[in-house]
Amino acid sequence: MKTLEELKALRKKSYEKMYMIGVTGGVRVQVGYGTCGIAAGAKPVYDTFVNEIKALNLDNVEVTQVGCMGECAFEPIVEILESNGSKTIYCLVTDRIASEIVEEHIVKGNRIDKYLLSKTKR
């Protein structure tokens, strides 16, 4: 890395990839993978997402680990970002719920309200 321009070019490319700019129907699944999340069982959740999405051959869906969002009591937390701009946070996710999210939300496009963080907390 020699110049700021070089960095900025990389930034643009990464940004577009991360936020699925220009991808239709792109989905980014963020699994909270800090110590809290891991302690609460994030690993099987993450694995479920990866495996099922691979099995379904969904090449516009990316599963990624992220750090702690701060809501430790509701871990594991999964956030679904879609290229249409919508964001959904699911909490207390188990591997079973993860399968359900893949099937209902990611494949069919139906948000599952009962697992939403906003619903659980209230």
Partner: peptide, 25 residues
């Protein structure tokens, strides 16, 4: 905590996507 829970910490590109290392530059 601007990037916590937002980027994949294993990928430097996601940090860069959020203006990472621009300050240093």
């Amino acid at each position: 905590l601007r990037n916590c829970g937002v980027i994949n910490p294993l990928e430097i590109t996601e940090y860069i996507a959020r203006q990472g290392y621009e300050a240093l530059g």
